[in-house]
Simulated assay, not measured.
Amino acid sequence: MPDLLFEVKNNIATITLNRPDAINAFSGEMIDLWIEALETVRDSEDIRVLVVQGNGRGFCSGGDIKEMIAGRGFYQSDEDRISTGLKRKNSLWKKVQRVPLLLQEIDQPVIAKVHGIAFGAGLDMALMCDIRIAAESTKLSESYVKVGLVPGDGGAYFLPRLVGTDQALHMLWTGEAFDAKTAKEMGLVTFVVGDDELDDYVQKYAERLAAGPQQAMRLTKRAVYQSKEMPLRSSLDFISSKMGLVMESNDFKEGVQAVTEKRRAKFE
């Protein structure tokens, strides 16, 4: 079986990290397949929602320490003319760091379905998603400090935007593990559900989003993320342009008609 599985069913794409014996620690093959899957989602008009999950007893334990030590997988480089440190930097840029950059280009909703553990880069991969739904027994940790590493895949960017600078530094400096309930109170996860309810909850949530007005939802996502980097005037100018576009769509016409007729809208 490949280290990552990708399937699309009823307009919902699912990425499954598939190294259960290693609690889905990253491998070179996994990252290559992850990048390929994200490019497919980004470029598809048929895929409406993406769910990212882990196979086996955990979501993701982060980078594979054995591969780091051996210089294999996504840490490997053939550029013999440069220093080892620069090789590792370039390898991160071309491999692992492609994941957050591609996620930034995806307009469809992305849901992290988290169970077991999400440690280090595994937690960061969940933070890159739009919505994080965690089973109540999940443990979450920025565990880089335990092995003397820095958060190399975007944790230093995403984490303080969710929990604040002080909490982010505490997590990164100590590697403390949090349960799902505490993580929700911190703003680290969106929803916490019972372990035996996780599959059904995520499926129904994904179906709900997939049934929504797609252009309006995608433009709204773009507006929310881009507005974080914009002054108010630019944000309002951006969203007024998108409002002009969506009001010409069939989804808008259907939505207005459904409200008038007091029924649920059926969007394209």
Rank of each mutant, 00 (worst) to 15 (best):
A156C: 03
A177D: 03
R208M: 15
M68V: 06
S77L: 04
D64T: 09
Y205Q: 10
S137V: 01
R72A: 03
L172Q: 03
D78Q: 10
T165M: 12
E142F: 06
A70V: 01
G63H: 09
E176V: 07
L172P: 00
I82H: 09
I106T: 01
R161C: 05
D130F: 08
T165S: 10
M125Q: 15
G63W: 10
D153F: 05
S77G: 01
K87G: 03
N90F: 05
D195A: 10
K139I: 06
E207P: 14
Q76Y: 15
K94I: 02
A112C: 07
G154I: 04
D78M: 10
V163P: 11
A126V: 09
R132Y: 06
E207L: 04
A126D: 08
P100M: 11
L127M: 12
G164H: 08
T84S: 06
D195L: 11
W173T: 10
Q76H: 15
Y205P: 00
L101K: 10
K89A: 03
G116K: 05
I111A: 00
E79M: 12
Q203F: 13
E197H: 13
V189R: 14
T190Q: 10
L149D: 05
S91E: 04
E176H: 07
F119M: 11
D64S: 10
D80T: 13
D199A: 15
G71W: 04
L123Q: 06
M125D: 15
Q108I: 03
L101R: 13
L149V: 01
F158Y: 15
F178K: 12
L209H: 07
K139M: 14
Y75V: 03
G63E: 12
V99Q: 07
D199T: 13
R88C: 02
L123K: 03
D199H: 12
D196F: 06
D64R: 08
K95D: 06
G73Y: 01
S83K: 01
G63D: 12
V114C: 07
G155D: 05
K66V: 13
G194Q: 13
T190D: 15
R132C: 14
L209R: 05
D196S: 13
D80N: 15
S141K: 00
F158I: 14
G175A: 00
G194D: 12
V114T: 12
D153A: 13
K204L: 13
M68Q: 09
L92M: 11
T138M: 06
M125K: 10
R88S: 05
G120K: 01
H115V: 01
V147Q: 08
V147C: 06
A210Y: 02
V189A: 13
D80P: 02
K95T: 15
L86W: 05
A183R: 08
L101D: 12
M171C: 03
E105S: 09
G194P: 01
E79S: 09
A210I: 05
L169I: 08
R98N: 06
F119D: 02
S143R: 02
R161I: 12
E142P: 14
L92Q: 00
E105I: 00
T174Y: 00
L149A: 12
L102Q: 00
W93C: 10
S77H: 04
V193D: 02
V150T: 08
P109W: 01
C129Q: 04
D124E: 14
W93F: 14
V202P: 01
V145M: 00
